[in-house]
Design a protein around this nucleic acid. Structure first.
Length: 584
RNA sequence: GCGUCUGUAGCUCAACGGAUAGAGCACUAGUCUUCGGAACUAGUGAUGGGGGUUCGAUUCCCUCCAGACGCACCA
């Protein structure tokens, strides 16, 4: 990475430092393993995987490990005895207290001088050895359909995961996989021909096209023949019918123009790739040939299928009986193409309703010999429901992305008017806080859970919310802007409070949390961490005044601490896709 | 019928197999001569039922109950 760092945008303020550095926890674990060896005990890799080093309740110490409990099983000895042996051999010079507690936990308390030393070190990033290029696929809106909150959710999760990959030194690129191919376009073309007024549609293409699409679908319920006609239009489109091609191209262009605004609307980073479904049109025949030559494809009821019933995955339709291709075939072509581009792993951020599709996709790829277990993963997430129902334009309970953003902006503006009318750059703050509130709401949920959308809860700016984190950051910035310290000091014998101690420990655990997030693709772990972190910051802020502090050395320490806390919080917010603010 | 996911406080959600299951909202009682109150301090209140695995289970396995979503020509 021999580039000029000063040219990098402020996107990754702390991510610039290079090289692999040991995380604090790794260092402590190393000491524990050494003690185990010195006590003539063995420790296997499977045991290592079970050993934890957590930050427990402050009353128990800075760190707690279950190492003795894990080792006791295979050793056939009591955990307490093993704990005693380990503690007896442990290099304790960094610790002020080492205690055995409960069933055999070892609780460790670091010397304050060690904590202060850590604080003096620059904030650093863990760099993993990259295992090759990763393609992260997210934001797959469908042409001629409006963006709703589900698309926002997808883009927000995907964007955060991308930022986290980059921060962890992964070689990741993103792809927006637009849904611009398939039977639905036949239906849309038919609807446009039947009901469309070109002038009306041109005025607000997405909204009007969607109306036509919905209208025809309603008509289809009483007149199924129309569906067959629609399917025929798609077949014609695939076969190159010039009229249909022209219409399709127009629909795609309108939609792309609209979708490209997501970057500005939501602060979503740009995609490296834009490989929509139609991009794979000329790559499908090759896949079809491969399926045939490997004897995987069979014919059934006029369609070409792969039978996966022996894997309990049912039947996968590759080509429909009318000759039209399926989404599955395009996804097969996608995976194979992406792999040929040098990507070692393909991650799909798609809601959990498509779990079955991805099971089928991966199963077929494996039958073809195109995929190993760790080369593809469906990062599923629960979808957002509204008033207890799945979002559906037909049921009229659609929550549009624009409406959510507008409502958030309105509420933020109102609060600023009440609380901080003198604020300088109001527009920027309104934008950042409203986006931050929405992103935090989405990302703070475990992605496996379905989310019940509720305006008041999603746009709540008190307590566990995006604005809470932003506010903590703004207050820290406020102090740094106002307080100066006389002279230069060392941190050696500063006496720190309990809250300050907790804050330092918490702050130093940042990289561990980000690593956890990446391991499970769970941004909510970072959101939870940042909320707890912000809570400690607010507590600290109330307890430990800086400006009024007469001890210059203590003041120096607090400013140093605050700088570090602020930078860490800003980095954390950034990984969630939220820009930190100095005032709000 | 088969498959995936989910059942935690009044509501919305957390919790790598770890110690006393955490928050926010709501409710109650406090902190305003404030480095910015979008804040802080406290209180009330929960693991769907039953088995199993083990030092230890909200977490893993089995089963039952309840819900969501999928299960060939939508994507």
């Amino acid at each position: 990475m021999g580039c000029n760092f000063s040219l990098l945008p402020s996107l990754f303020p702390l991510a610039i430092l290079s090289d692999i550095i040991m995380l604090m926890k790794d260092e402590i674990l190393k000491k524990l393993y050494q003690a185990v060896a010195d006590a003539n005990m063995q420790i296997s890799d499977t045991q290592k995987a079970k050993i934890t080093l957590t930050n427990p309740d402050a009353s128990m110490g800075d760190f707690a490990t279950n190492i003795a409990l894990v080792l006791s099983k295979d050793a056939g000895r009591k955990p307490l005895d093993i704990a005693k042996d380990i503690v007896g051999k442990l290099d304790q010079k960094s610790f002020s207290s080492v205690k055995i507690a409960g069933p055999g936990f070892i609780n460790l308390e670091l010397k304050s001088t060690e904590l202060l030393k850590e604080l003096e070190k620059a904030a650093e990033q863990k760099r993993l050895h990259t295992e090759g290029k990763i393609l992260l696929e997210y934001f797959q809106p469908n042409i001629a359909k409006p963006l709703h909150i589900g698309h926002m959710q997808n883009a927000i999760i995907g964007d955060s995961l991308k930022r986290i990959h980059l921060y962890m030194g992964k070689d990741v690129e993103s792809d927006t996989h637009l849904g611009d191919w398939g039977t639905q376009f036949g239906i849309l073309i038919l609807a446009y021909r039947m009901y469309g007024d070109p002038e009306v549609v041109a005025r607000d293409p997405i909204t009007e096209l969607n109306k036509l699409y919905v209208r025809l679908n309603q008509e289809i319920e009483t007149n199924p023949d129309l569906k067959e006609q629609g399917k025929q239009e798609f077949v014609k489109l695939e076969q190159g019918d010039p009229e249909n091609r022209k219409l399709w191209k127009q629909f795609v262009d309108w939609s792309k123009e609209k979708f490209s605004k997501i970057h500005d609307l939501l602060d979503i980073s740009k995609f490296e790739h834009d490989w929509p479904e139609s991009f794979y049109e000329d790559k499908m025949p090759g896949v079809l040939d491969a399926l045939k030559s490997k004897g995987i494809l069979t014919e059934s009821q006029g369609a070409q299928i792969v039978n996966l019933e022996d894997q309990n995955l049912g039947v996968a339709v590759i080509v429909k009986s009318d000759g039209g291709t399926t989404y599955l075939l395009r996804d097969l072509a996608t995976f194979i193409y992406v792999k040929k581009q040098g990507f070692r792993k393909h991650l799909y951020v798609v809601d959990n309703r498509q779990a079955h599709h991805y099971h089928q996709l991966f199963a077929i790829l494996k039958l073809m010999g195109e995929m190993e277990d760790d080369e593809g993963l469906h990062i599923a997430y629960g979808f957002i429901s509204f008033k207890g129902e799945a979002l559906s334009s037909r049921k009229g309970n659609m929550v549009l992305a624009e409406d959510v953003l507008n409502e958030a902006r309105k509420r933020v503006a109102k609060i600023i008017k009440e609380k901080n009318p003198a604020l300088a750059d109001k527009d920027k703050v309104i934008r950042t806080v409203s986006i931050g509130a929405i992103k935090y709401f989405i990302l703070s949920h475990n992605r496996n859970s379905d989310i019940e959308f509720n305006w008041d809860q999603a746009l709540d700016f008190d307590g566990n919310s995006g604005p809470y984190l932003l506010y903590a950051h703004a207050r820290l910035s406020g102090i740094l802007n106002k307080v100066n310290v006389q002279g230069s000091h060392t941190l050696e014998d500063v006496v720190i409070s309990g809250t300050e101690r907790e804050l330092i420990i918490k702050c130093l655990g940042f990289n561990d949390v980000v690593a956890e997030v990446l391991r499970g693709y769970l941004p909510n772990l970072l959101a939870n961490y940042l909320f707890e972190f912000s809570g400690l910051i607010n507590k600290f802020y109330h307890e430990s005044p800086v400006m009024k502090e007469s001890d210059e050395k203590l003041k120096f320490f607090r400013l140093k601490l605050i700088t570090r806390l602020r930078d860490t919080l800003a980095q954390g917010l950034n990984l969630l896709g939220i820009e930190a603010l100095d005032e709000m």
